[in-house]
Simulated assay, not measured.
Amino acid sequence: MAEILFYHHTERRLEDTLPPLLERSLERGWRVAVEMRDADLMEKLDQHLWTYREDSFLPHGTEAAPSPEAQPVLLTTSPENRNRADVRFLVGGAAAENVDAYQRLVFLFDGLDPDQVEHARGEWKRLKAAGHQLTYWQQNAQGRWEKKA
Protein backbone atom coordinates (compact mmCIF):
# COMPACT_ATOMS: atom_id res chain seq x y z
CA MET A 1 0.00 0.00 0.00
CA ALA A 2 1.30 3.46 -0.90
CA GLU A 3 2.47 5.89 1.73
CA ILE A 4 0.35 9.05 1.33
CA LEU A 5 1.57 12.42 2.55
CA PHE A 6 -0.12 15.82 2.51
CA TYR A 7 2.27 18.80 2.51
CA HIS A 8 0.54 22.08 3.34
CA HIS A 9 2.83 24.93 2.33
CA THR A 10 2.10 28.35 3.75
CA GLU A 11 5.44 30.12 4.06
CA ARG A 12 6.98 29.44 0.66
CA ARG A 13 5.67 29.20 -2.88
CA LEU A 14 5.31 25.91 -4.74
CA GLU A 15 8.38 26.85 -6.83
CA ASP A 16 10.46 27.05 -3.65
CA THR A 17 8.90 24.06 -1.88
CA LEU A 18 8.86 21.44 -4.63
CA PRO A 19 12.53 21.27 -5.78
CA PRO A 20 14.04 20.13 -2.44
CA LEU A 21 11.37 17.42 -2.14
CA LEU A 22 12.15 16.24 -5.67
CA GLU A 23 15.88 16.21 -4.91
CA ARG A 24 15.31 14.02 -1.84
CA SER A 25 13.23 11.62 -3.89
CA LEU A 26 15.99 11.30 -6.49
CA GLU A 27 18.59 10.80 -3.73
CA ARG A 28 16.54 7.79 -2.60
CA GLY A 29 16.76 6.33 -6.08
CA TRP A 30 13.09 6.95 -6.88
CA ARG A 31 11.68 7.95 -10.25
CA VAL A 32 9.20 10.81 -9.88
CA ALA A 33 6.10 12.12 -11.61
CA VAL A 34 4.69 15.56 -10.82
CA GLU A 35 1.07 15.82 -11.90
CA MET A 36 -0.89 19.03 -12.22
CA ARG A 37 -4.08 20.04 -14.01
CA ASP A 38 -2.72 23.19 -15.66
CA ALA A 39 -0.35 23.09 -18.66
CA ASP A 40 0.74 26.68 -17.90
CA LEU A 41 1.88 25.62 -14.44
CA MET A 42 3.74 22.70 -16.02
CA GLU A 43 5.64 25.09 -18.30
CA LYS A 44 6.40 27.43 -15.40
CA LEU A 45 7.77 24.57 -13.27
CA ASP A 46 9.73 23.19 -16.23
CA GLN A 47 11.59 26.47 -16.65
CA HIS A 48 12.09 26.91 -12.92
CA LEU A 49 13.60 23.46 -12.32
CA TRP A 50 16.43 24.25 -14.77
CA THR A 51 17.40 27.46 -13.00
CA TYR A 52 16.25 27.40 -9.36
CA ARG A 53 19.83 26.89 -8.10
CA GLU A 54 22.99 28.28 -9.61
CA ASP A 55 25.14 25.29 -8.62
CA SER A 56 22.96 22.51 -10.07
CA PHE A 57 19.81 21.61 -11.94
CA LEU A 58 17.16 19.01 -11.46
CA PRO A 59 17.06 16.49 -14.33
CA HIS A 60 13.52 16.41 -15.64
CA GLY A 61 11.28 16.68 -18.66
CA THR A 62 7.66 17.26 -19.56
CA GLU A 63 5.14 14.93 -21.10
CA ALA A 64 5.55 16.85 -24.38
CA ALA A 65 9.32 16.32 -24.59
CA PRO A 66 10.88 13.42 -26.48
CA SER A 67 11.10 10.18 -24.47
CA PRO A 68 9.01 11.09 -21.42
CA GLU A 69 9.44 7.50 -20.24
CA ALA A 70 13.17 8.11 -19.76
CA GLN A 71 12.78 11.12 -17.45
CA PRO A 72 13.81 10.70 -13.79
CA VAL A 73 11.32 13.50 -13.00
CA LEU A 74 8.37 13.86 -15.35
CA LEU A 75 6.07 16.89 -15.26
CA THR A 76 2.66 15.92 -16.55
CA THR A 77 -1.02 16.79 -16.73
CA SER A 78 -1.94 13.13 -17.22
CA PRO A 79 -2.63 10.50 -14.55
CA GLU A 80 -0.64 7.95 -16.59
CA ASN A 81 2.61 6.68 -15.09
CA ARG A 82 4.65 7.17 -18.26
CA ASN A 83 8.08 7.20 -16.59
CA ARG A 84 7.35 4.29 -14.19
CA ALA A 85 7.52 6.64 -11.21
CA ASP A 86 7.87 5.31 -7.67
CA VAL A 87 6.57 8.53 -6.15
CA ARG A 88 3.92 10.88 -7.54
CA PHE A 89 3.55 14.49 -6.47
CA LEU A 90 0.08 15.96 -6.97
CA VAL A 91 0.07 19.76 -7.20
CA GLY A 92 -2.34 22.46 -8.27
CA GLY A 93 -5.44 20.41 -7.52
CA ALA A 94 -4.47 17.13 -9.22
CA ALA A 95 -6.37 14.11 -7.87
CA ALA A 96 -4.92 10.73 -6.91
CA GLU A 97 -5.58 7.83 -9.27
CA ASN A 98 -4.03 4.36 -9.23
CA VAL A 99 -2.89 4.94 -5.65
CA ASP A 100 -1.36 1.51 -5.18
CA ALA A 101 0.86 1.87 -8.27
CA TYR A 102 3.28 4.02 -6.22
CA GLN A 103 5.44 3.68 -3.15
CA ARG A 104 4.49 7.20 -2.17
CA LEU A 105 1.92 9.84 -3.12
CA VAL A 106 2.55 13.42 -2.06
CA PHE A 107 -0.14 16.07 -2.16
CA LEU A 108 1.49 19.49 -2.13
CA PHE A 109 -1.02 22.30 -1.67
CA ASP A 110 -0.96 26.05 -1.10
CA GLY A 111 -2.52 26.99 2.24
CA LEU A 112 -3.28 30.47 0.92
CA ASP A 113 -5.42 29.13 -1.94
CA PRO A 114 -8.90 28.19 -0.66
CA ASP A 115 -9.60 25.96 -3.68
CA GLN A 116 -6.43 23.93 -3.12
CA VAL A 117 -7.15 23.60 0.60
CA GLU A 118 -10.69 22.40 -0.11
CA HIS A 119 -9.44 19.95 -2.74
CA ALA A 120 -6.82 18.55 -0.31
CA ARG A 121 -9.49 18.11 2.37
CA GLY A 122 -11.66 16.23 -0.08
CA GLU A 123 -8.79 13.95 -1.12
CA TRP A 124 -7.90 13.35 2.56
CA LYS A 125 -11.47 12.28 3.35
CA ARG A 126 -11.75 10.09 0.24
CA LEU A 127 -8.44 8.31 0.80
CA LYS A 128 -8.99 7.92 4.54
CA ALA A 129 -12.42 6.38 3.91
CA ALA A 130 -10.78 3.94 1.47
CA GLY A 131 -8.55 2.72 4.32
CA HIS A 132 -5.25 4.37 3.39
CA GLN A 133 -2.76 5.53 6.02
CA LEU A 134 -2.20 9.28 5.67
CA THR A 135 0.16 11.81 7.21
CA TYR A 136 -0.22 15.58 7.23
CA TRP A 137 2.75 17.97 7.26
CA GLN A 138 2.59 21.74 7.59
CA GLN A 139 5.28 24.35 7.04
CA ASN A 140 6.35 26.34 10.06
CA ALA A 141 7.45 30.00 9.96
CA GLN A 142 11.00 28.91 9.03
CA GLY A 143 9.71 26.85 6.11
CA ARG A 144 10.45 23.50 7.76
CA TRP A 145 7.96 20.67 7.74
CA GLU A 146 6.21 19.68 10.97
CA LYS A 147 4.13 16.52 11.20
CA LYS A 148 0.64 17.42 12.43
CA ALA A 149 -1.29 14.19 11.86
Rank of each mutant, 00 (worst) to 15 (best):
M1F: 05
E3F: 01
E3Q: 11
L5P: 05
H9Q: 13
E11Q: 11
D16G: 07
D16S: 05
P20F: 05
P20M: 08
L22Q: 01
R31Q: 11
V32G: 00
V32K: 04
A33G: 04
A33C: 05
V34S: 00
V34E: 01
M36L: 13
R37M: 03
A39I: 07
L41H: 06
L41I: 07
M42W: 00
E43L: 13
E43A: 09
K44L: 09
L45Y: 02
L45P: 01
T51R: 13
R53E: 14
R53D: 13
E54N: 03
D55S: 15
L58S: 00
P59T: 00
P66A: 09
P68K: 00
P68I: 10
Q71R: 12
L74D: 02
L74M: 04
T76R: 01
T77K: 00
T77V: 09
P79Q: 05
E80L: 08
N81Y: 01
N81I: 02
N81L: 09
R82W: 12
R82A: 14
A85W: 10
F89K: 07
V91E: 09
V91L: 09
G93F: 03
G93I: 03
A96I: 06
A96K: 08
E97D: 12
N98D: 14
V99G: 09
V99R: 14
D100H: 03
D100S: 11
A101N: 02
Q103F: 13
Q103A: 14
R104C: 07
V106F: 07
V106G: 07
L108N: 08
G111N: 11
L112K: 08
D113K: 15
E118S: 11
H119F: 09
A120I: 07
R121C: 03
G122P: 08
K125E: 15
K128G: 10
A129N: 14
H132T: 09
Q133H: 10
Q133Y: 02
Q133F: 01
T135A: 14
W137C: 02
Q139L: 06
N140K: 10
G143R: 09
G143I: 03
R144F: 05
W145A: 05
K147H: 04
K148I: 14
